[in-house]
Design a binder for these strands. Structure first.
Lengths: 156, 156
DNA sequence: TCTTGACATTGGAGTCACTCCAAGGTCTAG
DNA sequence: CTAGACCTTGGAGTGACTCCAATGTCAAGA
């Protein structure tokens, strides 16, 4: 099996495979007569394991170490620490989800603010109030001191 | 205002501020007699705007460009494209959240699997079935062909 | 036979957004 | 006089790729 085929099958780029090999995260496959890499089923399994560990967002170094151990048959040595590792990973993932949700809320707020303001954006650049800059400032900061003023002006 | 004070106030590192300046993302502040950077309120506002744009995960280049425009008073020029930009950003954020949620599910699965298996992990390193490797393989891949066998062995 | 095109090889540089470091200068309080 | 907190610079390191140029290999078609 050549590098391109393997890459396609496992959904990574050939650059990634060569990078893993170059940095020592994967064993070097044997070479064909023409110098091309020739991957055996053993190599494929090792890589698949590594990629699965990457899929749960382990840092490459950790994923590679674990993949090598498991592949070498030392799995049981590491299996006791594995649940702890997974637990840590989960709480990281959850924290990141929460963070992104808060970001989404801020964006929602900002969007609503901007949509409401678009008609009023004829206010010239010299007016700092309710300009896009002020909107970003205020919506992102969580308070909007410019709206009341602008609305009052609009109503007048 | 010196660099350390500003960094503390806005919650970034002095390295970050020097980096922004060095790469041209922020205008150079004036210098005091001793060569120290001396930030004016104008600089602070500009930086605050940039950091707010970074907080909504805009790439630094885009955030810096937008911050400079807004700060220079060209806000209204950009305000029409801003809602579109925010919308794009939101869909990116949502996609990432979904991705992380799926990851969390896979981790949940894997964790359940491992907890169920810990007692059985006396199976030696030579046995590839139901080793940690197999668990990672199978739980991550979504199917587990090893459990039935291992459980049968365990029951026997 | 020749050519085209898809594949492979290598080393090295670029990406992003910082982060850390060493070696030194400046200032204030005790 | 000294300790400690601040500041300066340029340069290297981080993670995980990604892209590139220059070159080699090979099978299929004209």
């Amino acid at each position: 099996m050549r590098i391109g085929e393997l890459a396609r099958e496992l959904g990574v780029s050939t650059d990634t495979l060569r990078f893993y090999e170059r940095e020592g995260w994967l064993p070097r496959p044997v070479r064909a007569e023409n110098g091309y890499r020739s991957y055996r089923s053993d190599d494929v399994e090792h890589l698949r394991l590594l990629l699965n560990l990457r899929r749960i967002d382990l840092p490459l170094e950790e994923a590679a170490r674990l993949a090598s151990w498991c592949h070498a048959g030392h799995c049981e040595t590491t299996s006791s620490s594995l649940p702890a590792l997974i637990a840590t990973r989960r709480s990281d993932v959850r924290a990141r989800i929460d963070e992104l949700r808060r970001l989404d809320e801020r964006l929602d707020e900002l969007q609503a603010h901007l949509v409401g303001r678009t008609e009023l954006s004829v206010i010239g650049p010299s007016t700092s109030c309710c300009s896009a800059a002020a909107a970003i400032f205020d919506a992102v900061e969580g308070s909007c001191r410019c709206c009341a003023v602008a609305n009052a002006e609009g109503d007048a």
